Amino acid sequence: GLLVFNNVSINWILGVFAVDIIVSLTYVILNKNHITESKVVRNNVRRIVAFLIMLITMFFYALALWRVDQYTPEMQITLFIGGAIIYYAVFNSTKDVLTK
């Protein structure tokens, strides 16, 4: 949200997205053996999955809005709220997925 609302360069935003993805996937790889055993790790993996899906979805919506020159402050707020809703929905819908 800080990057989006401060009109940071698209290169910085993409860089932060790339670092977020790398750190998240590294965490999952390092804790692969503990995913089904530890509730804390399982919840963290759920958060990571929800975050990555939200990040990818918001990126493509923002890219589409930017391409048609509709990336306005109002749409930035809408994207931010939509991203929060996506994160919450994915996080809540993956409660039993990792244990199965």
Rank of each mutant, 00 (worst) to 15 (best):
T57V: 12
D69L: 13
Q76F: 07
D69N: 12
I77S: 05
I77W: 11
R67Y: 15
I85S: 10
I85M: 13
P73Q: 07
M75I: 01
I81R: 02
Q70H: 11
I77H: 05
F80H: 00
Y61I: 09
G83Q: 02
L55R: 12
F59L: 12
T72V: 03
T78K: 11
L63P: 03
R67A: 15
L79M: 06
W66A: 14
A84H: 12
A64P: 01
M58E: 10
M54R: 04
L65M: 07
I53M: 09
T72R: 03
Y71D: 00
T57K: 05
T72S: 10
L52F: 11
A64R: 11
L52H: 10
A50F: 09
I81V: 14
I85F: 11
A84Q: 14
I56S: 13
Q76H: 07
P73H: 08
E74L: 11
Y71W: 13
W66K: 12
I86K: 02
F51K: 13
Q70S: 08
P73K: 03
I86A: 04
L79C: 02
I86C: 04
A84C: 14
I85H: 07
W66Q: 11
F80W: 11
I81K: 06
A64Y: 13
Y61R: 07
T72Q: 06
A84V: 14
P73L: 04
A84M: 15
Q70G: 06
A64T: 05
E74T: 06
T57S: 11
